[in-house]
C-alpha cells in the first residue's frame, strides 16, 4: 500500500492552568496524543473513532498544521507537517469545525470564492467549481443567500463544499454529518464514497459506529490519546469472535453488576443510563452461551429486573468496550499529569 499520510510516534502535550476554589493555580500537563503511529493509503477511507476527548481533533490539527506536535513526525502527501506547511495545506481539503468557519454576512457562494482564493484556485476555475459543487451537494437554492439565514444542515453542506473547493487529493472530515438530518447524512456519505472512488484519500472522524462501518476501509480507535485498535472493521470485529456480547435492559443495582463481573468468563461490562431510571448493560464474555444462565441468576439474585435480553453480533462499539470497558458516548477525560509527576493515569 502506498501511503498518502504517514504518522510516526506523534505526541502532543498541552499545558494549562487549573484553578480550584481557595487554592493557588496549578500548572497541569495534558497529554492529548501519545506516540501515535499509523499510515493511510492513497485510495483509502480511514476512520478515526473515539469518544470526545480521545485526541482525534488534536491529531487532525497536527496533520493540518494548525498545531505543532510536541514530538514525532508526520507526512501528508509526502510533505512534512513540520517543514513543508504550505504544501501540506495545499494537499488537504478540510472540514473541521462543522458549520463554523463560514462568514455569516457573506453568501455561500462568496464564502466558497473567498476560500478558493486562499487555496490559489484561479478565479475562472473557482466560478466553474462552485457551480459544480452547488449541483453536487444540492445547495443551489440557497447558495446565493447570506449564511446567517441558513439552517444548521445547510451550513454544514456549504462547509463541506468549502472542503472540496481546492480539489485536494486528501479530504479530512471531522464529524461531517453532525446536525444533518438522516436523509442528508446518508446522501453525504454516498458523496464521500464517490469522492473516494474518484481517487481521494479520506480521513474521517466520527463517533457514530454505523457510519464508520458503512464507509471506512480501515479504522483506528482512539482513547486517552492513543490508538488502541487499528484494522479493517471486519478484522476488529473478528478479534472479538471468541467473545459473546449480550445486551440487557432493565434495572441493575450495583451489587448485581458486581456479581456478574465476578463470574469467571466475563471479560467486560459497560453500563449506560437510559430514560426512566433504566440501564442498558453490555456484557462481553468468553464462554459462549454457556454462561448465560449464571449471568441471569447472578442478576436476579441481587435484585435486578431484566426487561430485555438480546445476544448480538459484534460491532465496532463492542470493540471499543472490549478494549476500554466504557461505552463510546461517555466522554473521555484526557490524561492529566501533575507537573513533575512522570506517567500517571486519568
Amino acid at each position: 500500500m502506498s501511503s498518502i499520510i504517514k504518522v510516526e510516534k506523534l505526541s502532543k502535550t498541552f499545558e494549562s492552568k487549573e484553578r480550584k476554589k481557595g487554592q493557588r493555580r496549578k500548572l497541569k500537563t495534558v497529554q492529548a496524543l501519545k506516540d501515535v503511529s499509523f499510515e493511510i493509503g492513497e485510495n483509502e477511507i480511514f476512520g478515526l473513532l473515539g469518544p470526545n476527548g480521545a485526541g482525534k481533533t488534536t491529531l487532525i490539527k497536527c496533520l493540518t498544521t494548525l498545531l505543532l506536535p510536541s514530538s514525532g513526525k508526520a507526512w501528508v502527501n509526502g510533505y512534512s507537517v513540520l517543514d513543508e506547511e504550505d504544501s501540506v495545506r495545499a494537499s488537504i481539503g478540510c472540514m473541521l469545525m462543522g458549520d463554523r468557519g463560514l462568514y455569516w454576512k457573506l453568501t455561500g457562494r462568496e464564502n466558497l470564492d473567498y476560500f478558493g482564493a486562499l487555496y490559489h484556485v484561479p478565479k475562472a476555475v473557482r466560478r466553474d467549481r462552485i457551480d459544480k459543487l452547488a449541483d453536487l451537494l444540492h445547495v443551489k437554492d440557497f447558495i446565493d443567500r447570506t449564511v446567517e439565514t441558513y439552517s444548521s444542515g445547510q451550513k454544514m453542506l456549504v462547509a463541506f463544499a468549502k472542503s472540496l473547493i481546492n480539489d485536494a487529493p486528501i479530504l479530512i472530515l471531522d464529524e461531517p454529518t453532525v446536525t444533518l438530518d438522516v436523509p442528508t447524512a446518508r446522501e453525504l456519505r454516498t458523496i464521500v464514497k464517490e469522492l473516494n472512488e474518484s481517487g481521494k484519500a479520506i480521513l474521517y472522524t466520527t463517533h457514530l459506529m454505523h457510519e464508520a462501518e458503512e464507509l471506512c476501509n480501515r479504522v483506528a480507535i482512539m482513547d486517552h490519546g492513543e490508538i488502541i485498535a487499528l484494522g479493517t472493521p471486519s478484522e476488529l470485529k473478528t478479534s472479538l469472535a471468541l467473545d459473546d456480547t449480550l445486551d440487557l435492559e432493565g434495572v441493575f443495582p450495583a451489587k448485581a453488576v458486581e456479581a456478574v463481573r465476578a463470574l469467571g468468563g466475563v471479560t467486560r461490562i459497560a453500563m449506560k443510563s437510559t430514560n426512566g431510571g433504566r440501564t442498558s448493560l453490555s456484557i462481553i464474555s468468553r464462554s459462549g452461551g454457556t454462561i448465560l444462565p449464571q449471568i441471569i441468576e447472578a442478576l436476579m439474585h441481587n435484585g435486578a429486573t431484566i426487561e430485555q435480553l438480546r445476544p448480538k453480533t459484534a460491532t465496532l462499539e463492542d470493540v471499543f468496550i472490549a478494549k476500554t470497558g466504557r461505552t463510546l458516548d461517555v466522554d473521555t477525560r484526557q490524561i492529566v499529569v501533575q507537573r513533575g509527576e512522570p506517567g500517571g493515569g486519568p
Partner: peptide, 18 residues
C-alpha cells in the same frame, strides 16, 4: 470568534497577503 481564523490558517495562502 466566528471560527474562520482556523480556516484561514488551513489554507496555503501566506499570512502576509491576507
Amino acid at each position: 470568534e466566528t471560527g474562520t481564523l482556523e480556516s484561514i490558517y488551513l489554507a496555503p495562502a501566506r499570512q502576509v497577503y491576507v
